[in-house]
Simulated scan of single mutants.
Amino acid sequence: MSRISVRGLAVASATAVTAVGSVVGVASVSSAQNNDAEATAADATLLADIPVGQQAPVQTASLTQQADAQAMAADASAKKDAEQAARRAAAETAIAKKAAAEKEAAEKEAADKKAKEQAKEKEELKKATSQSTTSDASDFPVQGSYSTAQIQAMARQMVPSGQFQCFSNIVSHESGWNMNAVNPSSGAYGLFQALPAGKYSSAGADWRTNPATQIKWGLNYMNSSYGSPCGAWSFWSSNHWY
């Protein structure tokens, strides 16, 4: 064997030993590295395979791709957040509209109920006040004197039955059914304590001697001023005058 051959064999042997050592070294490090290190080593290996003059453009392209991917991910996240916010806003708007509609319906129902009740009360009042009386003041002959029972009997025939109790309450408080009652302080006179007493004349000239004429005047006054005797009594109960 020549000197050159021996030298080549030595070089080859040294190269083989180096290669074996490299393999052993690589195998011993593998278990201690994480995924990011492996990815970096892989990228470095791939980059090492590229000619030196082309490595920079490749690195730039890789960074651009990463930036694009990150931007796309950010856009997708922002879009998802916007969609969720829009859904929440739509749900809140729907709830608010439903609550407003329910409130409006409840208010309308209450208003309708109140209107019906008022219409019913008005109709009942109209019916009560429009009832024709069985007698008028002219239907009763004038007497020299009248008992309380006789005056009340006249009133029952002239006042609608549904209104008589209210009518009677006022007369009882004002005069005690005394057609000649006089208030010593004011001069108010008669069953209804009219002031001045001459007001009774609008119902008849015999108002001083005929209780039916006073009853007619009192009934007309209650109907025109308060809608009915019960309307007058309601006012009297609160104010003690009418």
Rank of each mutant, 00 (worst) to 15 (best):
S202Q: 15
K122Q: 15
Q131T: 10
K126P: 01
V171Q: 09
V142D: 13
Y146M: 09
K114Y: 02
K116Y: 10
D136G: 05
A203G: 12
A155T: 06
K127Q: 08
A115L: 13
E123Y: 09
R156M: 11
I95N: 12
K97A: 14
K122W: 09
P196E: 04
A110K: 11
K113M: 00
S201D: 04
F140K: 04
Q165H: 09
I170S: 03
K114A: 13
S135Q: 12
A181E: 01
E121K: 13
A149G: 05
F192Y: 14
R156Q: 14
A105S: 08
L125V: 08
G187P: 03
A197M: 01
R156E: 13
K126Q: 12
S161L: 04
K116Q: 14
F167R: 03
R156N: 02
V159T: 15
E124M: 06
N169H: 10
K97G: 02
Q152T: 08
V159L: 14
E124W: 03
A149V: 09
V171E: 10
W177A: 00
V142F: 09
A99C: 04
Q131N: 01
G190V: 02
F192M: 14
A89P: 06
A188F: 01
T129L: 01
K126L: 12
V159A: 14
E124N: 07
S135Y: 12
D136C: 03
T129M: 04
P184D: 11
S145W: 04
E174A: 04
